[in-house]
Design a protein around this nucleic acid. Sequence first.
RNA 1: GGGGUAGUAGUUCAGCUGGUUAGAACGCCGGCCUGUCAAGCCGGAGGUCGCGGGUUCGAGUCCCGUCUAUCCCGCCA
Length: 584
Amino acid sequence: MESRTHNCGELTKKNIDKNVRLFGWVNSTRTHGKIIFIDIRDRFGKTQIILNTDSLIGKGKTLSNEDVISVSGNVIARSSELVNNNMTTGEIEVVAEELEILNMASPLPMSIHDRSASTEEHRLKYRYLELRNSELQNNLILRHKTTQVVRNFLNDQNFIEIETPVLTKSTPEGARDYLVPSRVHNGKFYALPQSPQMYKQLFMISGLDRYFQIVKCFRDEDLRSDRQPEFTQIDLEMSFVDEQHVRDLVEELISTVFYEVNNVKMETPFPTLSYKDAMKRFGSDKPDLRYAVELQDFKSFSDQSDFQAFKSSESVNMINVNNSDFFSRKIISELDTYAQSLGAKGLAWMKYKANSFEGGISKFFNEDLQNTIASDCDIQNDSICFMVADTSQISLKVLGKIRVKVAEMLNLCDDSVFKPVWIVDFPLFSWDEDNKRFDSVHHPFVAPKDKDIKIAISEPEKAISKGYDIVINGYEVAGGSIRIHDQKLQQEIFETMSLTKEDINSKFGFFIDALKFGTPPHGGIAFGLDRLVMLLAGVNNIRDVIAFPKTTSASALMEDSPNTVSDEQLDDLGIGIKENEKNI
RNA sequence: GGGGUAGUAGUUCAGCUGGUUAGAACGCCGGCCUGUCAAGCCGGAGGUCGCGGGUUCGAGUCCCGUCUAUCCCGCCA
């Protein structure tokens, strides 16, 4: 095969009169009898080819889209009226001397120029074709750039990249594990890692000091637009640090990534919110700070009103947004339905126009009270208030989701703006009402604040952790903590979570054992790479930044996995499938 | 596990309160055309209306079930 002299995206006026050879796919052909235009495409771009001799035209007529061709010819300038400013190569064209069809393509089952012209089901089945689309290719290139920047940055900071096992051990905490049956040990199973948590802590015990890895993790839980069953973490851990050391490094890493990949300058230090404040002000532990709307405590006002339904509620919160005219009966009703689907009894509202409240529940508030509310809550004319009354937890959570929904409806989010925020001071434990026991808010290895070490055991619900999350534009992009390095405390934390001594020993025994042989203070963080790239790419779907993603039911439509296996394979593993589970 | 939306030609969609032979665009096949750039013009082929059942003289349309995709709740230490 002849050598390619240039790719399809690099020829410019500088190459005029050069003889070149291009390889690529037929992007489109335009036949005009005695002249044929072909756009030849590769990953780097498109170039217009001219066929204008009888033999080339004969060959050109047989071309169809996506045929793979090789063209050699001369680069010529286009006259000014023929320049195509939409193409980087639009100032030139190549007059073909030779055209070779390397491989003909069958008609494609989908358009590669317009992704929206096919259903996602169809696009996933022919993902290798969808990946010819430049938008999707750009996302993968962006992902590549991101990991390159991360590797360089961490390498410069003395981190070393170390791999951890993929066949590992199931643990009782956390998400459901993906299991891999063992042939050699019939009846036993490996688990795929939910994260390399214990391994990276063991690296610190080993004295490796600074570790990172860009690594696949697996969680067998139900999916969302920002969740895949297998996803990639940028995982890192460092020794002899406290929260501020990790956070400083992570801020530098993030701002370096955003600057080098997207040319976006981020201000450091990032703002910080306590978990408590985040819930109170935004009704979420992953608030989108691109819009200023905040929740307000409305209980003291509603208690003075005649609205009985609110008086009996533990908590009433309110958000206020502009553009009251946008909120028609229909839109309000949609929001009410949404609020109810989230567990609220309903969504109350009233509009503020010409210095008084109207509609919704406004009639329960007398004029004096209305004036007090307007001034105390800083209500502007032509705005609307939404209120949810319930337990504090439900009221905040539901209104937090309404806040996001309303911002979406009003287009308050600018995708070119990035607002990072640290969420800190999480509780160490949450009470699991179903199982009547304490559960880690992050995971069992998170250290309590120094002042809370004692109460972590005596009054677990009051202890605050050394955990921290990074939230950007409403997405939890990274989460980490300072870890427990004291063996006794680790043991006690497990016991606080009502794990039996046997369970602790069989699941975590090796790890607790390791802690006693000289464990340095250490901590780290893990980024969701897919979500980070999602933000950088300005898309709101994790599948758009993954080459071969799975559907929301965790199947792969292209290769049709998961799939059944032969009886021989099952026999080897000592596994039988229950009859009623077959063929479904 | 629960709720919403969608499934009709190769692809994306239209198809009204049930009624003759299920339409359009793009793609495909054939023809015309020397300046197009998602080229244009003329002609043609192409359908198990997701699947199963029911109601009806008659179902793409109504009812029940089911499958798939997607969004959300639960879930995701």
